[in-house]
């Protein structure tokens, strides 16, 4: 059992949890993820690591309440427990001096990009961060991003913060104004693809952190297979980061829809149980 030692709401439906998992914290590196399983009936869900503290033994996760598992997680409180929490998994981000790095993140991807830019900053890269959100209320971690970025831009759908438009509008401008050595994008698949399309014209190396469906996440099942440069790769072993220009995006999109109907059934059932006053949490002490 893994204790939730801190819970914070960052914006509507986006939560910041610190989970006491000292063994995971010890070797956690930027770009890696964990798998959690909320209780004995839960599914195994991957979440990117948003930070870790070896001394205090915690791992930071930031997630958006979307499906059943994240909604269930969101209803837990400080002091409650998660049944399983395994990691760190996947290959860490390659941290070195690239030069100028543009970090592009959308939605909850903002949390995931934070440890990456933190490490890249330490190795003397110039960091230009571009954050996309639907509106300014949904922007998270602004202070932390500011601390790790040389320049920080926002794009919102309604123009309530930064430009009114998409992250790619800013990205296009940044790369036309200066020499960029690496683009690192994380967020919804469509956003990552759009970023890749923009950088492709100028042949700027671009990495994306893919988020396919996973089951074991240790190279055993092949659920997370993605096609990179025409070859099948396993995101949990070979990734989650890949060269964005080589990803078969159409296939990723369709594989992400695999269990849409079941996910809805699961979520509806959970919401119903909440209405009945019972979230079914055996995790409460």
């Amino acid at each position: 059992m893994y204790k939730i030692i801190s819970k914070k709401l960052l914006s509507p439906k986006i939560y910041n949890f610190l989970i006491y998992a000292p063994e995971v914290a010890k070797n956690a590196k930027a770009g890696q993820f964990i798998m959690f399983r909320i209780d004995d009936k839960g599914e195994r869900v991957p979440l990117t690591i948003a930070g870790a503290n070896v001394k205090e033994g915690w791992v930071r996760i930031i997630f958006q309440e979307i499906g059943k598992s994240t909604s269930h997680l969101a209803c837990l409180e400080e002091g409650d427990f998660i049944k399983d929490f395994a990691g760190p998994l996947g290959k860490p981000t390659e941290i070195k001096k690239y030069g100028t790095v543009v970090a592009v993140a959308g939605g909850v991807g903002t949390a995931e990009i934070l440890p990456v830019i933190k490490e890249l900053k330490k190795t003397d890269n110039k960091i230009i961060t571009i954050i996309g959100a639907r509106s300014k209320d949904l922007i998270i971690l602004e202070d932390e991003l500011k601390a790790e970025s040389d320049e920080l831009f926002f794009a919102t759908n309604d123009g309530s913060r930064g430009i009114k438009g998409l992250v790619t509008d800013i990205l296009r401008e940044v790369i036309s104004n200066e020499k960029v050595d690496l683009i690192y994008a994380i967020g919804p698949a469509v956003m990552m693809r759009a970023s890749a399309d923009v950088s492709k014209e100028k042949k700027i190396p671009t990495m994306v952190s893919l988020n396919p469906i996973m089951v074991d996440a240790s190279g055993m099942c092949g659920a997370c297979r993605v096609v990179i440069n025409g070859e099948t790769k396993f995101a949990c072993v070979d990734g989650p980061e890949f060269d964005a220009h080589l990803v078969d995006w159409e296939e990723l999109y369709s594989r992400l829809t695999l269990f849409k109907e079941n996910e809805q059934i699961s979520l509806d059932k959970f919401k119903k149980s909440l209405e009945d006053g019972n979230c079914g949490c055996p995790n409460k002490e």
């Binding site: 009936k41 839960g42 599914e43 089951v215 269990f259 079941n262 996910e263 059934i265 699961s266 059932k269």
Partner: peptide
């Protein structure tokens, strides 16, 4: 499923 969260087709 859906008593357990993991789906199968």
């Amino acid at each position: 499923f859906p008593n357990y969260d993991t789906p199968i087709y």
